[in-house]
């Protein structure tokens, strides 16, 4: 029996969500787990943009923040949190669609600076307009509790556990959708662009349109992840939209391997859990983190997941070759 890639992704992600819940000893682990799933969701958007199409964005934290702040602000005007989250995703999609066309004509480092500028502009508005957003000190997010949501369907859990399950479920859904997208005709168009704009165009792909679509999709992923973080933390600051957070999202994608959702998961897991582990290094924390980033990229320039998969495949091939050689001799 062979499973489709979408089903396989669902099973792997769902199993990992359940496994986490089985082994986590305390709310702290659920908290870190929740952050891992939220980051996985945001980075899955980067997989679509960077892994499938090959476009670099250094401004995606801006979309993340749009989702977060929509979810923080709209409930103050009587909008339910769920609707506010959708509005945030729609807002991010709209902005990405509007700005995407002109920006995505650029390539390489020019695209990087343009997306960086876009992210910085969003961050600046959030920091400066204190009457609305509370400024750099941030604002409280109220109006939604994962615990109550699950309670309403008859499941009673601690708050931290409820968030873990909710974010795990959304991340799983996001990963399955991304994998299915990759298998579709749009996904093939994306990969054709990844190899060469010109070749893709000669195959009849509307390059500008496809790039714009990938940009919008990845923006929606970031916005939903931002909304989840705002709700789970109950507090949000403009840092969520800052340059360093954009860099963090790209780093997670590249470190894990931007070509697949498994890379997104591994990258998110490592960079989220690592700071918790690195506290033992105290003063040396940043040096260790920097060295890990540099070392991984030198040794495994396509990321951890492809490198490990390649290693396994090679070993299997070697074993097969060995068996073959023995049989021949």
């Amino acid at each position: 029996m062979t499973l489709g890639p979408g089903t396989r992704t669902f099973l792997v992600f769902a199993a990992l969500v359940v496994l986490g819940a089985l082994v986590f000893p305390s709310s702290f682990f659920y908290r870190v787990g929740t952050l891992v799933w939220i980051n996985t969701l945001a980075v899955t958007g980067m997989v679509v943009l960077l892994g499938y199409v090959g476009l670099v964005s250094l401004g995606h934290a801006g979309f993340f923040a749009i989702g977060a702040y929509a979810t923080a602000l709209l409930p103050q005007y009587g909008v339910p949190s769920g609707l506010a989250m959708l509005a945030g995703a729609a807002g991010a999609a709209l902005l990405a669609a509007l700005i995407g066309r002109p920006i995505l004509k650029l390539s390489g480092y020019y695209l990087a600076i343009a997306t960086l500028g876009l992210g910085m502009l969003i961050w600046m508005v959030l920091s400066k307009e204190a009457w609305l957003t509370g400024g750099p000190d941030g604002m409280t997010v109220t109006g939604f509790s994962a615990r109550n949501l699950l309670k309403s369907v008859g499941i009673t859990l601690k708050t931290a556990e409820a968030w873990y399950w909710l974010c795990g479920a959304v991340a799983t859904l996001g990963a399955v959708l991304a994998v299915n997208l990759g298998q579709s005709s749009a996904g093939r168009a994306f990969r054709a662009i990844h190899d060469s704009d010109v070749a893709a165009a000669s195959l009849g792909v509307d390059v500008a349109r496809a790039k714009s679509a990938a940009f919008v999709i990845s923006a929606v992923y970031a916005a939903v992840a931002g909304a989840l973080l705002a709700l789970a933390n109950g507090y949000i600051t403009p840092d969520a939209g800052g340059f360093m957070h954009s860099v963090e999202l790209v780093t997670m994608a590249v470190l894990g391997g931007a070509a697949s959702v498994y890379g997104a998961l591994v990258g998110a897991l490592i960079l989220t859990a690592l700071p918790q582990v690195l506290t033992v290094f105290a003063e040396y924390e940043h040096m260790v983190l920097g060295a890990i980033m540099v070392g991984t990229m030198i040794a495994m320039r396509r990321g951890l997941v492809p490198a490990l998969a390649g290693l396994l495949a090679r070993r299997r091939a070697a074993r097969r070759a060995g068996r073959l050689a023995r049989r021949v001799s």
Binding site: L50, V56, G108, Y109, A112, V247, V250, T251, V254, L255, A258, E283, Y284, E285, H286, M287, V288, L289, G290, A291, I292, M293, V294, M297, I298, R301, R302
Partner: peptide, 21 residues
Amino acid sequence: LVSLIIITIGASIFLRGAMQM
């Protein structure tokens, strides 16, 4: 390109940690 971006960013984080020491 992205790998090189990450490498130089990683190097800058490392250097910052070193300068703090």
